[in-house]
Nucleic acid binder design. Structure first.
Lengths: 135, 135
DNA sequence: GCAACGCACAACCATTTGGTTGTAGATTCC
DNA sequence: GGAATCTACAACCAAATGGTTGTGCGTTGC
């Protein structure tokens, strides 16, 4: 279901959009951590940290397990990879676009300034093409 | 500055946390699009779409340029790549953790010098989530 | 010239978010 | 057993979010 994927992505990126949660994620990727040991790193209430942990869990980026009186959280590398892959796919789309433009340049006349299209340097979308959009 | 990076990441992931914005990003990665042509794809007001475009621009994920009476947006592959890389680094952290555990297991785990936390010889049920790529 | 188009921006609104405090249930330590 | 620890959860609050409508202004087409 496409919608489900979108909902997952919503949860992933929303969970990642808070710096405290990203920091928590970094820590638990290194190894299991209890909620209170995590909380000691931040200047906010334990409840706030616990909520962040729950948010990360609901996004599938970490898992929680109870051990005695503490709850241990650990990172889910698979989910992190999936989110990364989603962005990588966006990049691929861009590369295809560049490839298309290359094809056009190779076949037809070129009014575009020869631009080195590739990841190495910065962005440089060949905007100069300024399509004669007349409606 | 570390803080600046964090702010960037905040903006990136927040911008990506909305499915409409992700869709807009996908479209403009394929090529420049005017705001109103983008808006035709969604069942919301043009103003709403325009706000999304602005959000994406402020996150640095797209650029806008004025051409006549329309505003053309196009994707910034570099920023998308940076966001993806940030997640990839998280994965790396996880791999290092697995590598450490492997080392410990291979060399008789006794004390954890580098591990400031209590997680006693954490069990790695890691294999469950994804291929333990130890390189 | 003037109507239609494309966009920006302000004002407004309901909902979500990130934070707080307070209460309560398990679990561990002495 | 009793105190301390760790966590969950409810209730509350200010601010941000995602959406709307309305207004205005430069650009384009006839």
């Amino acid at each position: 279901m496409d919608t489900i994927d979108e909902e997952r992505a919503d949860a992933w990126f929303h969970a990642l959009s808070d710096r405290t949660r990203r920091d928590i994620l970094r820590r638990v990727m290194r190894g299991e951590q209890s909620v209170s040991s995590l909380a000691r790193n931040y200047s906010m209430s334990l409840t706030a940290v616990q909520k962040h942990v729950v948010t990360l869990e609901r996004a599938g980026l970490i898992t929680r397990r109870r051990s005695g009186r503490e709850t241990l959280a650990s990172g889910q590398a698979g989910a992190v990879r999936s989110a990364a892959r989603l962005l990588a796919e966006l990049e691929d789309v861009w590369r295809e676009r560049i490839a298309r433009i290359d094809d056009l340049l190779g076949a037809e006349a070129a009014s575009l300034p020869a631009a080195p299209q590739h990841p190495p340097a910065a962005q440089h979308r060949a905007a100069a093409s300024s399509p004669p959009r007349k409606d």
